[in-house]
Design a protein around this nucleic acid. Sequence first.
DNA 1: GCAATGAGCGTC
DNA 2: ACGCTCATTGCT
Length: 665
Amino acid sequence: MSSAGTRSRRGQRVAAATRPVARVWVDVALAHLDRPFDYQVPADLDGEVVAGCRVRVRFAGRLVDGFVDERVATSEHPGRLGWIERAVSAEPALSSQVSILARAVADRCAGTMSDVLRLAVPPRHARVEAEPARAASARPDRPEATGWQRYPRGEAFLGALHDGRAAHACWQALPGEDWPTRLAEAAVTAAASGRGALLVVPDYRDCARVRAACAALAGDDAVVTLAADLGPAERYRRWLAVRRGAVRIVVGTRAAAFAPVAGLGLAVLWDDGDDLHAEPRAPYPHARLVLGQRGASEGAALLMAGFARSAETQLSVESGWTHEITANREAVRAAAPRVTAIGEDDRQLARDPTARAARLPAVAFEAARAALGRDEPVLIQVPRRGYVPALACARCRTPARCRRCAGPLALASRGGAAGSPSCRWCGAAEGGYRCAACGSRRLRAVAVGAGRTAEELGRAFPGVTVRTSGGGAVLDAVPGRAALVVATPGAEPAGHYGAALLLDAAALLARPDLRAAEEALRRWMTAAAMVRPAADGGRVIVVADSGLATVQALVRWDPAGHAAAELAARREVGLPPATRMAAVDGPPAVLAGIAETADLPGELLGPVPLPVRGDAGDGEWERLLVRVDRAEGMALATALADLQARRSARKEPDAVRVALDPVSV
DNA sequence: GCAATGAGCGTC
DNA sequence: ACGCTCATTGCT
């Protein structure tokens, strides 16, 4: 007698009396099997096999996990159905909303349902599931006065949340803004109207800050954080509390974008340009995509928020889908620190010999000294190590781009000989380079070092505490006392700084990445937003040429204008998000075959060397890029999913990796 | 001419 | 990792 349940005298299983067929998403990695399969529900599992529950089924002989999509009366399958072998539990882990979301995300990313479900639903923890259910938190009161009054359309957005309308907005936070509290006010407004709110932030430090802000407004029980650093039990405990509707406000990192928040009324993405929002596992969905999909399928309001603005968000604004929440110019001027740019030409090293040793420009030295004199901390932003050397105009520093496809130019150093520059996307050699901005024919390599060390800076300011934040040791916050705080972008400790020095800014700007300018401004603004207003003496020194548009955008504190110019520039040369791109990574011979035979819409570029090497032994892999008009984006995704399905059905030995809208191309 | 065996394939 | 098909083998 097997454990599979009730059988008749002859050992045959008896099907459930009503709706005896379960449609099951089996956890199988093969692309050509990316659809539900029908199974018979044995009568004794009738009560447990519910929509969304986990089951074990026999698939091609072996036992595999699956989620029940739905119970139905009959099957379309012409052959004989297998049986549900086991109901893992009656917990409906997969909600219909998340099921629909996962399917949509898989389709958009040319991936499979099983891959997306692995990202969306955490592993089960049986003991946690058996624990008594967490009591539902009380519905909070709507916040009375909020800080959104500083923004002309801010209160209107909260009003839309209160009324349950699916407003779509992007919010440019003022410098110095207590943004965790603003996001909490929006979330609690949605929760007060009986709906759920989901706030996705780049890292666990932001999670903690936003959680604390939500707890302060709505109580500790009203909010949970879902972050990757939790253990499996706690992770599942919190996730289950959300799934069971006990908690309506969820704060988390990118995986939380799939959180099964009941009655989702608001989805927020903070700092959508941050690379951490890009999922590194197949099918590589970006949190922006996941939340955007939920806005469409669940009728939730969407808020893209940050100090800076991405080109993607700008496109959404220009298309009319998203409206802007920005402060007026007077409010910006009142809140912003005074920003000074110093290019290499006007970079005068400090007279002070120790400052000279640290290679600190005089203006930067003075700004830091003034802040320290007021007993305020000074933030020093240094780039991370390891940027790929690329080429830029020797005169104006504009990154050198390919004439054919606008990819970044680099010196091909393969085989030892550094020959003429060539495109890192399409491989075309560039014989007669001429800068698009200034017409110069001279190129220079842009190599970025590790930045000045904390010790060098310490020597320039004897007796001042030096703290570092970055890499493995990230500080959450610094006290409001005189100190030098050296941090890499993204690791800046929270604090009220008297000054910020953005060192090696020109190198950050000249990175061979299509998002270099946008990313530089995002990082600068994130750091500069923590500096006191100019009226209180706050100063920001950016070590880059003041003539550069991106530097100007920082000086004028104009993230929207920069995003608009950035998007216009990408339209000009046909780069995302003005177009849509897909990356197909694999062995060169396989890519050559695909380029020749595959029926893909749009235009093929490359193959080119991989911009970032994956971890799984993709030794000699290359990358094929496919570019289409935005209107054809879905057709491209479908074509690539078909390609994967055909390869999988043919049991092709070499897997290829497909990513739509990859973060770096 | 035809069972016995095995490789290949789809996968409910 | 099962059960089906279809090809090959080996014996009459």
